[in-house]
Amino acid sequence: MKKDEVKLIPFDVLEVVTEAKEIPEGVKLINAPAAWEKSEKGKDIVVAVLDTGCQIDHIDLKDRIIDGRNFTTDHNGDPDNYSDINGHGTHVAGTIAATENNQGVLGVAPQAKLLIVKVLAGKNGSGSYESIINGINYAVNWRGPNGEKARIISMSLGGPQDVPQLHEAVKNAVNNEILVVCAAGNGGDNKDTTDELSYPGSYQEVVEVGAVDLNKKPSSFSESNKNVDLVAPGEGIFSTYINGQYATLRGTSMATPHVSGGVALIVKQCENKNEFDRTLTEDEIYAQLIKRTTSLNFPKRSVGNGLLDLSKE
């Protein structure tokens, strides 16, 4: 990998199908449906998805996308064309917020809004640190038609370099009360003796997400280090895919949007008039997230505080 390059955290496409009608197993495993009533399914909470873009006319996603921007050379660098030619970003977006329409799949927060920030290009999904930094800053400064702001930034990407400007962009987002959720990375060796570091996931300021399988066992590929905050399902993850399709993928990339969507539910529930009845700070959102974990009997370097469990309060 070039030093100035960030890539999709590698992922495996296990199956692609043309039809679906189900709540995916990963969404069930974190007990998202148990939180839907109190959280209004994350209604209108904006999640910025920094990835390969999104199939904007996918039947399960078209009603969830509020806006977007392209920071890559794809589509001749047209900033207004944030279409996905890889599939990864569309899959991530679906796990966060695939809509309720009696077909397809359901996301963790099926009433949340998606701000699509295309920062990775090409069929291989690579980009510069500059595009990631610009994408983060765009998400921080973005305002919707009714003054909406991004509350969560979701990044299923990483690189080996600790770039100071990237760290500054992350810190700026956090200082603007945005929770930044990042994949731990797929370079794990299933040993817990040394830190395995990818950036931005390893920055202390972000929520670093590792992966478990559907039996709640840490995935062998999931990187372990002292900054892992929690885990979510990352194997056998069924979601939306390009060309109007659906696919089963695996990777910490797939675990991350479970947490990003979960945070949208948490924010919506906590800020309603029956609870805090005010805007939560980033620290408070993080505290509410960690309250909703179930401990797992594995080293904390692998699983952090445990598995996301949205049935907890």
Rank of each mutant, 00 (worst) to 15 (best):
K273W: 15
I266S: 03
L120V: 13
D78N: 15
V117R: 02
V16Y: 06
S220P: 01
I23P: 01
I65P: 00
G135D: 11
A169H: 02
I66K: 04
R64H: 03
H91Q: 11
N305G: 02
D309M: 06
V231R: 12
S224M: 12
F71W: 06
I59V: 06
I153M: 11
S154G: 14
E282H: 05
N146Y: 15
V303E: 02
Y138F: 15
I30H: 08
Q245I: 04
S224Y: 09
V27I: 06
N297F: 06
K216L: 08
V163H: 03
K217D: 11
L249P: 01
L179H: 10
E208T: 15
S131F: 13
N274D: 15
S83H: 09
D192M: 11
I242N: 03
I152T: 07
K21C: 00
E22K: 07
Y203E: 04
I153Q: 09
S39L: 06
R64I: 08
R143L: 03
V212S: 11
P257A: 13
G104S: 09
V180E: 14
E5A: 04
K268T: 02
I136K: 12
V105P: 05
C54S: 11
P160I: 08
F238N: 10
D195P: 05
E37Q: 08
G185Q: 14
A183H: 13
T90P: 03
N141I: 05
V170G: 04
A97D: 02
G104I: 07
N274G: 11
I152K: 11
L50V: 09
K191W: 08
E284T: 04
D63T: 09
P10I: 00
G234H: 01
V47G: 01
N101T: 09
D229G: 10
G104H: 14
A98V: 15
P110F: 02
V303C: 07
G306W: 05
